[in-house]
Nucleic acid binder design. Structure first.
Lengths: 337, 337
DNA sequence: CCTAGACCATGAAAGGTTTCACGTGCTGAG
DNA sequence: CTCAGCACGTGAAACCTTTCATGGTCTAGG
């Protein structure tokens, strides 16, 4: 009876040593040839490359990582994949990373700081060269863990990190102006959780402008997603506002559903404006007027910044703020006369 | 002038050797203590653990991987993150994987076989313990690359792999029955690209049933997403069908938009039924009747199967088929009398 | 009191790669 | 003709861990 011989269904990948031997050169030369570094004669290099290809050589990344300290992986940490904004972001990040030769660990923190903590730690332990982090809240214990790993922070201005943001305050302003220009004077604001600076900025931008040029009928915060907080529902039900600015498209959509369930119609009875321009926004009926930010550019900038920092840790910190713009659709009209 | 001293802004993580030295034990003992393997006295183990914690020791995964051949990472390959079906899937996979101690490399193949090829190869090179793969088409060159890496295939029945599927044919049947029960006799079918067996199954299930109990007015395939193929638009414009079965919710939504742009209303003029039950389906106006499959269960099953195969490569192949169900909403009514 | 084992602990090899420091042999300038 | 220097190659160390084989100490049974 043969004892368990090496399973031949799992063809071990060729090692560099084997390539070197097969090519009749030293390990060092093989390495140099393949990495294009060192000094190898043109003829030898080609020969080695040919042999390597023949053997189907693929470098063992773990070993490589051990020597170089580079894993070729980056992490992307987002709060909630269920919010369509994030897949859009992830898609571009993955694509850009791939172009730069990196693979992407994706993790979803489920909106919970504990999960965020755990996720990040798993990721960092795993050995990533850098992290793109879209924090749930402004800060928290996670910041410490990431210490030592190049990190670019999306959407929030965390001191000490590279930061990619959009000009939310201006977005809030734009939204308010748009409504005011349409003739609204009684405007309500629903904002996201104020633990997040982004939500604050959006709200503050809107509120400041509304206060200045119209009436801020009410302001509720801490709305999170499609399911409306009771406070939000209550505010909506006062029917005192003819227009609503929501801190996110998801919130806006939730609000519109609620409004409809009250027997009112958007935009005839109440105008609604959102934030993010998620893909559904234009698919919704009525199509949602919203504030659009250049996700693609932001994602690309994030990757680019991260790669830059990975390759040169002493880069000066960067903070890039992208402009937002209003995209007018059907969910806003003038107030009922 | 000091020559560039070791950068102290990047605190090198403690190595196991350092822990061992600090604890006054051998490297081996430290390793055993931390991994809970080998034989270490209770007292020593605790001491080592304490020292390790103090030093903030985190094992170097690359080194570990090199010895053990396990990277603790799995890959998830999906066609298109923009289709909300996939983020839902990804979310559960990531979560389940995390629970099992794995991190997830996510990659989006942009619906293109070349990108798929490149993505997979990058991933495999990177060293993943296994792959969950949602193929674009039924087969192709990628299959070869994955050879040697444990793989579970989602949605398509690829021979030789572990497979997780939903019973699409039955879904098609369900959709057709539903329409017929509502009184429709002229039914059109729009299906996805027939290169994908899933699309074929959906269509075949629907068509068989329609043929049997009503009239198949027309059938166009190769629809892909929101943007309708000209052929699809043309079919819709014949206005010969009072109900349409679409091979995916995204297709259904695209169709509804087109129908509306023709001045017709869903469901009064045309009933529409989709496939997938993506989150938008219920948010859409009118809410979309669709075939729901248990994404969470499928994702969890995929991870579980993969982990099983990783830890025991000689597991028998599995093929799990999940039941689908129809969720009735607003986009279907009886035909106009 | 002796010895077999149990129990702990350790040294050292191995795993695949990069890279430093060095050694050849040749070219071309003086 | 000599020798500096270049181009090309190589041996070996180092990266951090796991794990095998081995050795020492102590206990308990005979």
């Amino acid at each position: 009876m043969a004892k368990t011989d090496p399973p031949n269904d799992v063809p071990r990948r060729a090692t560099l040593k084997e390539v070197a031997k097969a090519a009749g050169v030293s390990l060092a030369s093989a390495s140099y040839a393949i990495n294009g570094a060192g000094s190898v004669g043109e003829a030898t290099r080609e020969h080695i490359l040919k042999v390597a290809a023949q053997l189907g050589y693929r470098p063992n990344q773990s070993a490589k990582a051990m020597k170089t300290g580079r894993t070729g992986a980056i992490g992307l940490i987002v709060p909630d994949l269920t919010n369509p904004f994030f897949p859009s972001l992830a898609q571009v990040v993955i694509q850009a990373a791939r172009a730069a030769g990196y693979s992407v660990f994706l993790t979803d923190t489920e909106g919970s700081p504990e999960a965020e903590q755990q996720a990040v730690s798993l990721m960092v332990d795993h050995g990533v060269d850098g992290v793109i982090w879209f924090p749930i809240a402004d800060d928290g214990p996670v910041g410490r863990l990431i210490e030592g790993v190049p990190t670019v922070v999306l959407d929030r201005n965390l001191p000490g990190y590279d930061v990619i943001q959009a000009d939310y305050a201006d977005g809030g302003r734009l939204a308010a102006e748009h409504l005011i220009a349409a003739g609204h004077t009684n405007i309500g604001v629903i904002s996201g959780p104020h633990a997040a600076s982004s939500a604050r900025q959006r709200a503050e931008g809107a509120i400041a402008t509304v206060r200045e040029k119209a009436n801020l009928t009410w302001h509720v915060n801490n709305a999170f997603s499609l399911d409306l907080e009771p406070a939000v529902a209550a505010a909506l039900e006062t029917r005192t506002a003819t227009a609503v600015i929501a801190g996110a498209d998801l919130i806006a959509i939730g609000a519109m559903r609620h409004i409809r369930s009250m027997g009112l119609v958007v935009p005839d009875d109440v105008s609604v404006i959102g934030f993010d321009d998620i893909p559904w926004a234009q698919l919704h009926t009525p199509a949602l007027t919203t504030i659009d930010m250049p996700v693609e550019d932001m994602a690309a900038a994030a990757v680019e910044t991260l790669v830059r920092r990975i390759t040169n840790r002493s880069e000066p910190r960067r903070r890039v703020v992208f402009n937002v713009e209003l995209v007018a659709r059907e969910s806003v009209t003038g107030p009922k006369s």
